[in-house]
């Protein structure tokens, strides 16, 4: 007789397998298509193995322009969002004021709103207030609106663990506010700032919804992908996806190896 424990184990095991098949199989299909000679992106029929779609992708100057734009936008989003997140987290963790909860609600509201609303409102604001039509700048502003919120939450989590008497001690030993900030506060928050910067970069690099409405006629990589996928679909997009997947897996492996090495050190 099979015990109920075995049944439970089997059930859990098959669920896990199914879950990850569901998660990864589409990505496998997508990668496979990148190497099929067929001009229509499809897994079957298999017409032959080729690297041609990577060549097509690399020859597309639009893609390179979009990639460069993505880097520019992501760079400025990091430059803007991390300081905003830092300032807001200092304000919220250090000062006690009555309207703190409502203020907090306003600061996290961009995280709970659909991206297209942020994109649209940013676009309208810069158009109305400064007669700036959509472009990289409005895309940067739209993305920073909610990415700053993520940065704030991340930095706040660490700032709350800070032992404030260290700052008092530094003051007492003659440091100015600037010195205290640079020598004591900032070094403590550094890990959170690095994580926030990395997250901000990736969020920006990925963003489609807010950017779509804010960016006007310019293109970042997701906008480029979107327009390609909506018009004439070519397996070159699969080649791009394949590169994304490769980078991600490499990143994950490197991260895991580094984490293990760090764990052994301790």
């Amino acid at each position: 007789m099979i015990s109920s424990r075995v049944v439970l184990k089997l059930a859990i095991g098959s669920y896990l397998v199914l879950f990850f098949v569901y998660l990864f199989l589409p990505l496998v299909f997508m990668s496979v298509v990148a190497f099929n000679t067929s001009t229509i992106p499809q897994v079957t029929p298999w017409e032959g193995f080729t690297f041609n779609w990577f060549r097509v992708l690399f020859a597309d100057s639009q893609m390179w322009d979009a990639l460069i734009n993505s880097f520019i936008v992501a760079f400025f989003v990091v430059i803007i969002s991390v300081p905003i997140g830092l300032a807001a987290s200092l304000l919220l963790t250090r000062l006690q004021f009555k309207a703190r909860n409502s203020f907090y609600a306003i600061l996290v509201s961009p995280l709970l709103m659909p991206g297209i609303i942020i994109g649209i409102s940013t676009f309208l604001f810069w158009d109305k207030a400064f007669h700036l039509s959509g472009g990289l700048w409005t895309a940067i502003m739209a993305q920073s609106t909610f990415i700053s919120g993520y940065c704030m939450l991340l930095i706040m989590a660490r700032a709350q663990r800070f032992n404030k008497t260290q700052e008092d001690a530094a003051f007492d030993l003659g440091a100015t506010h600037r010195q205290v900030f640079l020598k004591i506060t900032l070094p403590f928050l550094k890990p959170a700032l690095i994580t926030a910067a990395a997250l901000a970069f990736m969020q920006s690099f990925e963003n489609y919804n807010s950017t779509l409405f804010a960016i006007g006629f310019e293109q970042t990589l997701p906008i480029y992908i979107g327009s390609k996928l909506r018009s004439f679909i070519s397996p070159a997009m699969n080649a791009l996806a394949c590169i994304f997947i490769l980078i991600t897996i490499t990143g994950a492996v490197v991260y895991e190896v580094m984490r293990r090495r760090e764990a052994i050190k301790r």
């Binding site: 003051f171 007492d172 003659g174």
Partner: peptide, 17 residues
């Protein structure tokens, strides 16, 4: 301010950096 006074404080939790 504390940074301009000729005093130095030893904190209860020491507050070492």
């Amino acid at each position: 301010g504390p940074n301009k006074r000729p005093t130095a404080m030893i904190f209860q939790n020491l507050a070492l950096f």
